[in-house]
Amino acid sequence: MSILLTAVVTLGVIGAASAAILYLIGQKFKVVEDPRIEQVQEALPAANCGGCGYPGCGGFAAALVKSDTMDGFYCPVGGQATMDKVAEILGRTAAVSAKKIAVVRCNGTCEHRPRVNYYDGASNCAIASSLYGGDTGCSFGCLGLGDCVESCTFDAIHINPETMLPEVVEDKCTACGACVKACPKDLIELRKQGPKSRRIYVSCMNKDKGGVARKSCDVACIGCSKCFQVCPFEAITMENNLAYIDDDKCRLCRKCVPVCPTNSIWELNFPPRKEVKEEAVKAEV
């Protein structure tokens, strides 16, 4: 009986002492956290992609709560709906911004842009691009080694084995911007998704002079400025032999598309044109 008693007492004392220590330490090192941080974090999609520029959703929530405004904070994964919800929790109003999507600005498929040498290094775009311009004549175009695919946490970008170019899956892309950072050639841009996913952009980043660009790739922008001249909204700028369409100014009138001599301007998800311009229309899916 006494053994039992000793055991019970000993264990009881140890237990009580441990509990006391734990309690004291817990009090001493207590971190007072703004309860809103947790609320905000719960509203976020928990993708932890870092697309907002903060280390994961927790970091984003903490920074957001600490800040006074909603300016500069945007969760590309959750989009407007999430931001509205977060703004409600914090008693602020979210700025309205349009849904974006990643576009790959290179159309140098194997047909359009023949390979002129054979790359034999590690299968990694960053390594290849630090070595040289690439295995085609164009030193601005896609290397096709898939750093963007690796970087995507949403399985939204894949290399098409036919063209050796990455393609974005519209439904999955959250415009987190990981691929934009991963691409050493800066080919990927986040652009407005547009009404009914209709959008127009220059699918080329070649800054060489027209002749040089054309020689290495059939569908390179040669900097002829025809689109620039035809655009009624001043949405197109020319720089370094390359046209760029500002998606804030573009009204999707499609006038620039047929004038491009190298078909380097893409229009996506538009209904087919009346005229026989089959080639210019590259409707996807």
Partner: peptide, 12 residues
């Protein structure tokens, strides 16, 4: 293994 390829990238 392309050890140096990666190390060069990492070094940068």
């Amino acid at each position: 293994r392309p050890l140096l390829d990666y190390i060069r990238l990492g070094k940068g």
